[in-house]
């Protein structure tokens, strides 16, 4: 007991009476004979329990840390995040020819796939690889660490007008032909000789959507769908668009179709979602202005990601991200601090 804890005896007679009474009341109270052994035994039990709890806590903490570390490492292990499939990124070609994936929000280069060594006309993004159509014909499959190989089944020398990939399949359009490459097999779909495939989109089931032009007439392109495993394209006549579709891409609800909002106005486009079975309109979509009038169908490209966002990219390097009814300009430059070629990037 410290000196400051205690009070000097008080002089009040009432207080002294109470003080004396309290002391007298408990004067004969003594600890039981077993008090000290019980205290010491209780202390030992308590120490044991606390030690056990401490060990259990340490084991639990170590296990949690190990699990977190595993999750942390797994999330960052390259094989589990295949090249080209990282969310919120697109694939583009830098000015020096290197194919890269670029983070959508920041424009930072996320991964490099090497240089194809040939002029690129179109890009497609797969789960583990990036596919690049070359100007001299054929398609290159680029992998991580700069590995690449030329795709078999695509006839070299043919000018590739469009490519797309999904679930390990690759669709390549050349003139009026479409080659569907899956592992070691190639299936070819040939349209009438007067037709030319301007764009194509391949969905997860193997279904193809084609934007088809007719060389013999000056009419707008039409939209055709090739069912999975089929070899003929069914024209979607019910979809009426004055100036025809320019580009298309699959979404989880249907086909996203990009077209000019008016035939005479080529610097503004509209994206409409349609039912691929009937051609009927599912959603009116959104429209937005481009930075310059479209010169040719190859000047623009649409691609979608797993969340149905649509990336619209032009050869001028401008990009727009369409998310539902919202349209936002994507990163101004293709990749921050590094210029890109005119090949439109794809998600």
């Amino acid at each position: 007991m410290t000196e400051s804890d205690t009070a000097p005896p008080d002089g009040s007679s009432d207080e002294q009476l109470v003080r004396n009474g309290l002391h007298a009341l408990v004067a004969d109270v003594e600890p039981s004979a077993t008090a000290l052994p019980r205290v010491l035994a209780g202390r030992r039990r308590r120490t044991g329990v606390r030690t056990l709890l401490g060990v259990t806590g340490a084991v639990a903490a170590t296990t949690a840390a190990l699990l977190l570390t595993l999750v942390f490492l797994v999330d960052r292990t390259p094989p589990t995040v295949p090249a080209g499939t990282a969310p919120d990124s697109y694939v583009a070609q830098l000015a020096d020819g290197t194919l890269v994936s670029v983070m959508l929000e920041t424009g930072e280069v996320r991964q490099e796939f090497g240089r194809p060594g040939a002029e690129i006309t179109a890009l497609a993004r797969g789960e583990k690889h990036v596919y690049a159509a070359t100007a001299d014909g054929g398609v290159l499959r680029m992998g991580a660490a700069g590995s690449f190989r030329r795709m078999r089944g695509v006839v070299p020398g043919d000018e590739v007008t469009a490519i797309d990939t999904s679930e390990g399949r690759l669709a390549v359009a050349s003139g009026n032909r479409v080659a569907l490459v899956s592992r070691n097999t190639t299936r070819r779909i040939t349209l009438s000789a007067e037709l030319v495939v301007r764009d194509l989109a391949l969905d997860r089931s193997g279904r193809l959507a084609l934007v088809v032009g007719d060389r013999t007439i000056s009419g707008p392109p039409t939209l055709r769908v090739v069912p999975a495993g089929g070899d003929s394209a069914v024209r979607l006549d019910t979809f009426e668009v004055g100036c025809g579709p320019l580009r298309t891409a699959w979404t989880s609800t249907g086909l996203a179709v990009l077209r000019p909002i008016e035939c005479a106005v080529t610097d503004a486009v509209r994206i409409t979602t349609i039912d691929p079975a009937t051609g009927s309109r599912i959603g009116g979509g959104v429209h937005f202005g481009l930075d310059r009038p479209l010169g040719a169908i190859g000047d623009i490209r649409v691609s979608t990601d797993a969340t149905d966002r649509i990336l619209v990219a032009t050869t001028s390097g401008r990009m727009w991200l369409v998310d539902g009814a919202g349209v936002d300009p994507a990163t101004g430059q293709c990749a921050s601090r590094r210029d890109c070629t005119s090949v439109p990037p794809v998600m």
Binding site: L22, V29, P31, A35, L36, V39, L40, R43
Partner: peptide, 23 residues
Amino acid sequence: ESSAELTDLYHEHYSRLLRMAVL
């Protein structure tokens, strides 16, 4: 060490604290 300290503490203060608790 803790048991020895506890024993010392017991001899010094246990009775007084016990009487206080009884009151």
